Amino acid sequence: MRDHPPTVETAKDLAFLVITAVGESAIRQANPAYSRQADYLRVQSGLIELLRECADDAEGWGQVLDCFEGKGQVQLMTIHKSKGMEFHTMIFFGLDNQSWWSLSPQRKEELNSFFVAFTRARQRAFFTCCIERGGPITWLDNVLGTVVPRVAGCDD
């Protein structure tokens, strides 16, 4: 690829080189949904489009790959999608007693989901709650106690 600077067209060519090198059958076996032609073609099209977007203004292939990997970007996902992953920082939006009404020590499945998400943070976790929507989850607020600093929001 050294002889071919990143462009929208060379990115498309790269996508097909990767698909050929890995093998369509191996890609299809990676996820049972890919056995359906429509699903496989949607994923293939997504790969090509993402590489093309990344190559559009890139100065080199390293920059294309950084963009493709999402380097320097914030990842938004559900708790279930985060399982098995780790991140430097986790931010929980809307961790109030109306959005997370089922988060209680008595409800093991919901508590396990919260634990999965919370343990994805390697260094820190931030929690936000909306006072207008119900306020903090009392038992969680008590567990965090005085160890975790509180910051009040603005009333703009």
Rank of each mutant, 00 (worst) to 15 (best):
G94N: 12
G145C: 09
P105G: 05
L47W: 09
S25T: 12
A33Y: 10
F118S: 06
G135T: 09
L51V: 03
C67P: 01
E49L: 10
D3T: 03
G135M: 11
F68H: 00
E86Y: 07
Q73A: 12
A11V: 06
H88L: 09
L17E: 15
S45V: 00
F127T: 01
G70S: 13
M1H: 09
E86T: 13
A117T: 01
V43L: 11
F126Q: 06
L140A: 08
W139H: 13
T78R: 05
D96P: 02
I48V: 15
A38P: 00
W139K: 07
T128Q: 08
V8Q: 13
A152Q: 05
S35C: 04
A26V: 07
R133Y: 04
S104Q: 11
L50W: 02
F92Y: 08
C129W: 09
A58D: 05
C154N: 09
E109V: 07
V22F: 07
I48Y: 02
N97V: 04
G62E: 15
D66W: 07
T78P: 01
E49A: 14
Q63V: 02
S102E: 14
R120S: 06
C54I: 03
A33T: 09
G135N: 12
K108M: 08
F16K: 08
E132P: 01
G153P: 02
N97L: 08
V43R: 04
L65V: 11
V64G: 01
W100E: 04
L51G: 01
Q75V: 11
T10Y: 09
V64D: 03
L95M: 15
A11K: 02
D56Y: 05
I91V: 15
T146Q: 12
F68K: 01
V22K: 09
T128C: 06
S35P: 00
L103D: 04
V148E: 03
F126C: 12
S113W: 03
Q106V: 01
V116R: 01
W61K: 05
D155L: 14
I48M: 10
D39R: 07
V18R: 03
A26G: 02
E24I: 06
R28I: 05
V74E: 10
I131H: 06
R150M: 11
F115M: 08
S25R: 11
Q123W: 07
T78N: 07
L76H: 00
L76K: 00
L50S: 13
A30I: 00
D96H: 15
L76C: 07
D96V: 07
R133V: 00
C154H: 09
V143F: 14
D39V: 12
R28A: 06
T78F: 06
S25W: 04
L51T: 00
R28L: 04
F126R: 05
I79W: 12
Q63W: 00
T146K: 10
M90N: 04
S82Q: 13
